[in-house]
Design a protein around this nucleic acid. Structure first.
Lengths: 114, 114
DNA sequence: ACAAATGGAAACGCTTGCGTAACGATCGGC
DNA sequence: GCCGATCGTTACGCAAGCGTTTCCATTTGT
């Protein structure tokens, strides 16, 4: 079910949502952090540091740091994998789901205003 | 002409575009910088530091720094206002327009894939 | 003409993210 | 049972952004 956008609509949407995020959200997540968060919540688990790093095309410490920051904000959680204790499984949280729900609403509402 | 999106589409779109930006764009602009850039290119001029600061709800030095960074990247330009030499008028550049054109294409293409 | 107000930049110390390179813990092959 | 490979984290020095405050140039009001 594709979404057809004109160039003006596409940029207008990105503009409006970015603006609202800057104005409203004091958490001030980086683009990378947002990408990690969305990957975790929209793609079926399990998620590992290594997997996320490969998906985003970044190094592992970048993911570790993103998880540190977002973990402190309560947006994600980390659990050791008991089947292979080298792995860390990244878990979703209620607060993280709530954050993305708000982001979704923001995109939807700004889309309507175009 | 509104754009109607389901929650899944809205988040999926944001996810896909963020992911591509992280993977492709080495410039790594912050959310604030992107918001400034879009404001400059989508809203009719003239744009001033003070005006942008008010629109984004941030302090003036934040805008000055964003313009420093994006100016070094060639995405925007600054010119003193000759009618009131206290003001600085922010100008668009070819490179900046190109950057946003690519961003627009990215949003459009990811929208089609939903 | 001169004092107050305005616009933008610079200075300051601080926080946060970066890339690279190491490091401990754990697993797998032999 | 080891030795090499793998996973995530930590350490390090560095670059960039932050908020606050100060500063300079310019304009406005009287």
């Amino acid at each position: 079910m594709p979404v057809e956008l004109t160039p003006t609509q596409a940029l207008g949407l990105w503009h409006a949502v970015s603006l609202e995020l800057v104005r409203v959200d004091s958490r001030d997540l980086t683009l990378r952090q947002v990408a990690v968060l969305l990957e975790i919540y929209l793609v079926p688990p399990p998620h590992t540091v290594r997997g996320l790093a490969a998906t985003l095309g970044v190094t592992k410490p970048v993911i570790t740091r993103a998880l540190d920051t977002m973990g402190a904000l309560g947006l994600v959680d980390r659990v050791r994998d008991e089947r292979d204790r080298r792995n860390v499984i990244i878990k979703r949280t209620v607060e993280g789901a709530l954050y993305l729900e708000k982001l979704g609403d923001l995109v939807i509402n700004q889309g309507r205003k175009l």
